[in-house]
Design a protein around this nucleic acid. Structure first.
Lengths: 269, 269
DNA sequence: GGTAGTGTTCCAATATTCAGAACGCACTCC
DNA sequence: GGAGTGCGTTCTGAATATTGGAACACTACC
């Protein structure tokens, strides 16, 4: 573990989480490092363009460059591009957030999302992470994940709310049921008032690569509604899979500009 | 400039740009470092959860964690959240990509985007960066940026295509016109076949904080169409500004999970 | 079964990084 | 107005963290 690298990322993460530009001293304090150390780290991050000093001020803030790394990752994911219009269509038929989720290690990540037009809605920011076992889409992804992943999750179950699953066997049973019925439901396992339904999206080999989910406040998602949403999801997924299988290969590489994350050339060879 | 930090970011950027998992040796070569050095860097990034070894393989790939940093940045931007539904509405009236852009230093960044349903469309992945002077939204943002920013851009004009602006005075003139007429057009200045229109979005103080843009293939965007789109944009922007000014304060903080980018506590105080 | 390449481990040497002190500056509070 | 506090930044020397190279076990390919 290279220490300075760890510190740099911690500092950057801290800045991205802050709700405004931060002072050097506070950054140093928050990360338990000296001011001069923080200064060096920030200067480096600044040269790399991940951090900027707010205009004519000495405060530091994160730039959107870090967004670029992750976004590039997503744009490579042709599924997200293919699915987007279908999500839109689905979103028009449903007064809740519609999301496309992928598994990232032991996490559920929101890869795309259409916000509901309702005023009351659940939180679902793009890129949001949640433990696999605690959200509906995560359960779907987990149910179809390699055994090693399931084992690891089962080994480390923690309760986030009263409804969280904590018994490994109960989890495995639930996953089996999800595989059988083709969808998963999560009720207030992360957020007390939230409820969600999710169904698996498969690639042409039949492997589950994503989960389409609909989530909203508990009281709007009764049993009948859920059943209706599952039907809508399966219908949408059928279309997505067809469009994807139809050889849609994604856009060509986006244009590159100088200074934009260029690869260092090997100096010798 | 802390070298190990720089290398770490270069490696991560490289991985995010690659179109699949990479081998250690190739990573080392691509960054001009030794294998053992690359190994240490990757191991660190792995512990920090920015990099993962593809299942039962020795290949390395970037995780979506980097996406999280950037996404958090965006989610903090309440404008993006407020504007999203309005972008959707606009997108229904227009067969092109609809984008919300913000300025990040000297770059135009796509902060939100609704993809067009048309088959032929321009590239617009979320988080994409382009030089300010070369895209329509960037021109709008530049036109309303502090003088220091304009100066810096004017000082370093480079031609990306034949149509790129290279004369500083011409640029300033164009910016003045943009401020006057309330919108900007860019024609094939980045991508030969692409054309875009953009208009400024202001906060309650009247400062320009974003640009709403519509972009598509050249042949679909004639003069009349442009005029029509500008009208639609201004209409949409009026609604966005109203909704935003109406004290919409964004969602509460999203739930946090352990292990998720936790802040190191100061050890002493 | 040799050769070439790999990912990984180990070690020692030194270049790199860091803590601390020092400085000028902007504030605040008497 | 002047002492005092806390700031961002610079500098320096000490030492530690980082790095390159050699070595290893493995695999893949002739």
């Amino acid at each position: 573990m290279i220490k300075s690298v760890e510190k740099a990322f911690r500092v950057l993460e801290g800045l991205s989480r802050a709700d405004g530009p931060m002072r050097l001293s506070d950054i140093a304090r928050a990360n338990g490092i000296t001011r001069s150390n923080a200064f060096h780290l920030l200067q480096t991050l600044q040269e790399l363009d991940y951090v900027r000093q707010a205009e004519d001020s000495t405060l530091y803030e994160a730039t959107f460059r870090s967004f670029e790394i992750g976004a590039k990752l997503l744009s490579r994911n042709t599924l997200v591009a293919v699915a987007h219009p279908f999500l839109l269509r689905l979103s028009e038929q449903v007064p809740e957030n519609v999301m496309l989720n992928v598994r990232d290690g032991l996490w559920n990540v929101v890869a795309d999302r259409i916000e509901s037009r309702s005023v009351v809605r659940t939180l679902a920011y793009l890129g949001a992470r949640a433990p696999l076992q605690s959200v509906s889409s995560g359960k779907v992804l987990l149910a179809h994940a390699p055994a090693s992943v399931i084992d690891e999750v089962a080994r480390s179950l923690v309760a986030y709310t009263a409804r969280s699953i904590t018994d490994p066997d109960a989890l495995r049973e639930q996953l089996a049921r999800i595989r059988e019925q083709g969808y998963a439901v999560a009720i207030g396992e992360v957020n007390e008032d939230a409820k969600g339904v999710a169904s698996p999206v498969r690639d042409r080999h039949g492997d589950v690569v994503a989960a389409l989910s609909i989530a909203g406040p508990m009281n709007r998602l009764g049993e009948d509604t859920i059943a209706h949403y599952v039907a809508l999801q399966h219908d949408t997924i059928r279309r997505i899979e067809a469009a994807w299988a139809n050889g849609w290969r994604g856009d060509a590489a986006p244009p590159q500009f100088p200074g934009q994350a260029s690869v260092a050339r090997p100096s010798s060879a």
